[in-house]
Design a protein around this nucleic acid. Sequence first.
DNA 1: GTAGAATTAAAACACACGTTTGAAACGGAT
DNA 2: ATCCGTTTCAAACGTGTGTTTTAATTCTAC
Lengths: 231, 231
Amino acid sequence: MAEIDTRLRILDAAEALFMEFGFEATTLRQITGKAQVNLAAVNYHFGSKEALIQELFKRRLAWLNEQRIQALDRLEAEAKGAPLKPSQILDAFFGVAVKMAGDRVGGGRNFMRLLGRTYTEPSEFVRNFMAAEYSEAIARFKKALFKALPDVPREEILWRFHFMLGAMSYAISGADALHIVAEAPVDDSDSDALYARLMSFLIGGLRAPLPEILTKSTRNSAGKPRTRKAA
Amino acid sequence: MAEIDTRLRILDAAEALFMEFGFEATTLRQITGKAQVNLAAVNYHFGSKEALIQELFKRRLAWLNEQRIQALDRLEAEAKGAPLKPSQILDAFFGVAVKMAGDRVGGGRNFMRLLGRTYTEPSEFVRNFMAAEYSEAIARFKKALFKALPDVPREEILWRFHFMLGAMSYAISGADALHIVAEAPVDDSDSDALYARLMSFLIGGLRAPLPEILTKSTRNSAGKPRTRKAA
DNA sequence: GTAGAATTAAAACACACGTTTGAAACGGAT
DNA sequence: ATCCGTTTCAAACGTGTGTTTTAATTCTAC
């Protein structure tokens, strides 16, 4: 009753506080206070504050990306080798995330809002860790997008994927930030509506005509290390 | 030579360090060390670390939004009362920002990368301050967008504006974050190309068809039940 | 050239942080 | 009931933080 429970209480409290105040500004005393455990419990169970952060990301991120990959697996099984529709791919990737962000009770909401901010986080160890945790899912989705959009330069797809992550991040960070543009309070409680809005936007952006600057020639002299040669 | 210069040196050093490490993780000793001024100079010239941050945002943000408003003024003067094209409006708003982000020498690059992260910053005083500094420009651009897109619900325009800010933020945060999706190093040195990429994406997103869920009735259970059937 | 204000400099301050310690309380097995 | 490994607890530790202080220095004006 009191053993593994302490770990969970710490993780949940930390998640909520990190998302509210950020990593640096959140203290272990806040966390242990909110979790109603002893201060030393964090270092006992996790080793350090940094290790706590990693553990916190691990438990959610592993699950999240597993769900994404499974969704993609199902789509590809159905398609039987045919390229997927871009909207299906985006749905598999972003749908899971937005759904998780809509989960208020399980704490997924806190985590997703934290995650969006963390993606551009300065702290190096966090970014490296994220890159490692993401790598498998990212590789799978990149491959699917390349296949679904054979006539779009791969570099362009990556950039647009990057932009889409930004839009998603802001979408999830929600009304807290939106109130800057909206002035009046905005309803962000309906995650189905949010998802519909976001998805229209993303698909519009992904399928937008290529910028002229790219359709002409690769406007650069230096030979870029083109990692993949054959396709 | 040594009076106002100290202020500037502190501001520039702080900008670079905040963008590299974040607000909390950057210490006054780092700042004054980099600026080659005495530690006490920050509190003498600015009063506190918090006031330094505000001053830092003020000097750039005021200029940035002024440029944006002037660009919009020019467009509207030319149009003589006719609605602008959405792409023109986006160009006025995001073009200035990306240009500033491409300015490596003046320090604008550091600032813009910092700004993108700060928009979703947890710290309340920063967010409130940002909202105040942005309010005039945001109001003008909202009005222009409403006029340019009379058949799109205003709430939808606000959300899409919000998404666009997210995409821009990630675009500017640049290769540091992109390397997570790209694995191989990515060239983000060409701000013209970056801007062309971003703008295609944004216009595609802004002009995307409205989500079904919104075209029917305002918003209720009908539409696109993804995973949860809403009875 | 000198008084007076503005700025810089060095040192210390009070405090909060993450972490460590050593003992107390607990839990299950024998 | 006793033991032993695990977990909790209160207290303290060392360090680094933003800030303040007090004196030295530089600048400005007469």
